[in-house]
Design a protein around this nucleic acid. Structure first.
Length: 246
DNA sequence: GCGACAG
DNA sequence: ATCTTGTCGC
């Protein structure tokens, strides 16, 4: 497990954060198809918080796309780098997520994160931001439609309908299980929406949410537990470097 | 101005 | 996201 600090120059205000989004948005690549579904490796990333203790834990779990077996995983712990503000989620998650990705023993391949990419007030959600900073193909899978609208897709797994910002299709409501609430898929970086949806279906053989996010979710929760129980036992140990790491 | 709003 | 036990249903 690696420890992260908030990067120097990290936005401190909402205004600064929005300015960063407006600048980085130009670097998003949307004309690449992305990796073929069912091949190579796919990495799920997720984050858990303890706002009381100001601690955040991130996990990255690499799955073999064909077998969905875990082939690598890593975690990172840090301080919360931004409050939760709708539209600025990335500033809360990215430093720790980047550290977890860096700690992986093999290349991540396609990254699947919680939340949105293009489906964002300024078309630059977490998945896009993560993609631009890493250069990796990234897609976003969210559990809620955020501020967007959609018509209910068909009741069977695989049915989908456009996720709309007015007339613009910014993502898709995708049914991953019969008669269960859809997930909301959007492109982050270097992938197409059709391809992203195909990946999500390949990642959901049994549950509503992709195996990538399920694995990453449970791992980051465990990492947070371990980090905060350590803090409770010896508060000073967390603020200095551990004996083994230095 | 008011309410809604990924995680 | 997080607070949180049992419980309805396949």
């Amino acid at each position: 497990m690696t420890t992260v600090r908030i990067p120097a120059g990290w936005p401190a205000t909402e205004e600064q954060a929005r300015a960063v989004q407006d600048e980085l948005r130009a670097r998003v690549v949307l004309d690449e198809p992305g990796p073929a579904p069912g091949t190579g490796y796919i990495t799920g990333v997720d984050v858990a918080y303890d706002d009381e203790r100001d601690v955040v834990a991130a996990a990255a779990v690499v799955l073999d796309a064909a077998s969905l077996e875990v082939v690598a995983e890593a975690t990172a712990v840090g301080r919360v780098s931004f409050p939760y503000v709708p539209g600025l989620l990335a500033f809360r998650e990215i430093p720790t997520v980047l550290a977890a990705l860096d700690a992986l023993s093999r290349p991540p391949g396609l990254v699947v994160c919680d939340g949105y990419g293009l489906a964002h007030p300024r078309r630059f959600g977490l998945a896009s931001h993560l993609g631009v900073l890493t250069g990796l193909p990234v897609i976003g899978v969210a559990k809620n439609p955020f501020t967007f609208t959609y018509d209910e897709p068909g009741t069977r797994r695989g049915s989908s309908s456009p996720l709309l910002a007015g007339e613009e299709e910014v993502g898709r409501a995708l049914r991953t299980r019969d008669d269960v609430k859809p997930v909301f898929v959007s492109v982050g970086h270097r992938a197409t929406l059709d391809n992203a949806c195909a990946h999500v279906l390949a990642l959901t053989p049994a549950y509503r949410l992709p195996e990538t996010t399920r694995r990453a979710d449970s791992l980051c929760r465990r990492a947070l537990q371990e980090a905060t129980s350590q803090e409770a036992a010896s508060p000073e140990a967390t603020t200095r470097h551990s004996p083994t790491s230095r």
